[in-house]
């Protein structure tokens, strides 16, 4: 078991990764997909405006990339702090 100070540093680093990821999660779905759609209606992706596309397809792709990026980042953190399995 890692000592107390390094495990609390690990937890702080973990929380930072979570906050950044959640900010992206919120921005692509609730942000572009819902709240900002009227403001961004001039931008289009093929036959759809960007808000419509993010609400129906785009945010799902972002979610996917987000989870895998998070898993990779956390595996690196685990090793760095010596808490990997």
């Amino acid at each position: 078991m890692a000592d107390k100070s390094s495990s609390s540093a690990y937890w702080a680093a973990n929380l930072r990764v979570i906050w950044i990821s959640l900010a992206i999660w919120f921005a692509c779905s609730f942000g572009i997909g819902i709240l900002l759609r009227p403001a961004l209606s001039g931008i289009s992706i093929g036959g759809a405006d960007i808000g419509f596309w993010f609400a129906q397809n785009g945010s799902i792709y972002v979610f996917l990339v987000l989870i895998f990026a998070y898993a990779v980042k956390m595996n690196k953190l685990d090793k760095e702090f010596g808490v990997d399995e």
């Binding site: 979570i18 990821s21 959640l22 999660w25 779905s29 997909g33 419509f52 609400a55 129906q56 397809n57 945010s59 799902i60 979610f63 987000l66 989870i67 998070y70 898993a71 956390m74």
Partner: peptide
Amino acid sequence: YNNSVFLMGWTGGYVLLALLLAP
């Protein structure tokens, strides 16, 4: 467009699962 809620809602929950609960 209104029913995009199902598309975002039923996939975005997995981000929360991966980050906040599963590990």
